[in-house]
């Protein structure tokens, strides 16, 4: 599905939001560096999706981030149950299953965000075609019944 580039409705507000997000990220990196690093690594596809998704509301990114959080929840809990150091982060990310699960979950989110609209569109279109056929048939019957030709 082609995504439509959307211009920010209020450039000023968008700048403030971006600035606040940057500040939050900065604070997070300062206060909880391991968590932030783990989050950046595990949610890398989400960040890519955020950058690439130009649609208003970023619905695809929303699905990706939700699935990303779902796939990253266990590593974060594991990190928070340890000493919360960079070594723990290193141990987690060197476990290939951790990244695979997190990234696969985000891929699944992206995939669902892409194919679900397609299938729903197909179902809707099928229903519309059936309705059109029904109306056309009724119309033909009426036209034939009330035509002047014998």
């Amino acid at each position: 599905m082609a995504s439509k580039p959307v211009a920010p409705r209020n450039p000023g507000a968008a700048n403030i939001s971006t600035w606040l997000q940057g500040v939050a990220c900065g604070v997070l990196f300062i206060v909880a560096t391991p968590t932030a690093v783990l989050g950046v690594l595990l949610l890398m596809p989400t960040l890519l999706s955020f950058v690439a998704d130009r649609e208003q509301g970023r619905a695809v990114t929303r699905a990706v981030v939700l699935f990303g959080f779902a796939g990253s929840c266990a590593p974060f809990v594991s990190l928070w149950h340890t000493a919360h150091g960079m070594e723990d982060v290193w141990l987690l990310i060197t476990d290939i299953r951790t990244l695979a699960i997190a990234w696969s979950a985000q891929a699944l989110g992206w995939l669902l965000a892409q194919i679900l609209p397609f299938f729903i569109g197909l179902i809707g279109e099928a229903k519309i075609r059936m309705e059109i056929a029904r109306l056309q048939k009724r119309r033909d019957a009426l036209a034939e019944e009330w035509s002047s030709a014998d």
Binding site: A59, R62, A63, L112, A113, I115, L116, P117, I120, G121
Partner: peptide
């Protein structure tokens, strides 16, 4: 939109 909402 519906598909994306469902995905979400």
């Amino acid at each position: 939109n519906t598909g994306q909402e469902i995905a979400a």
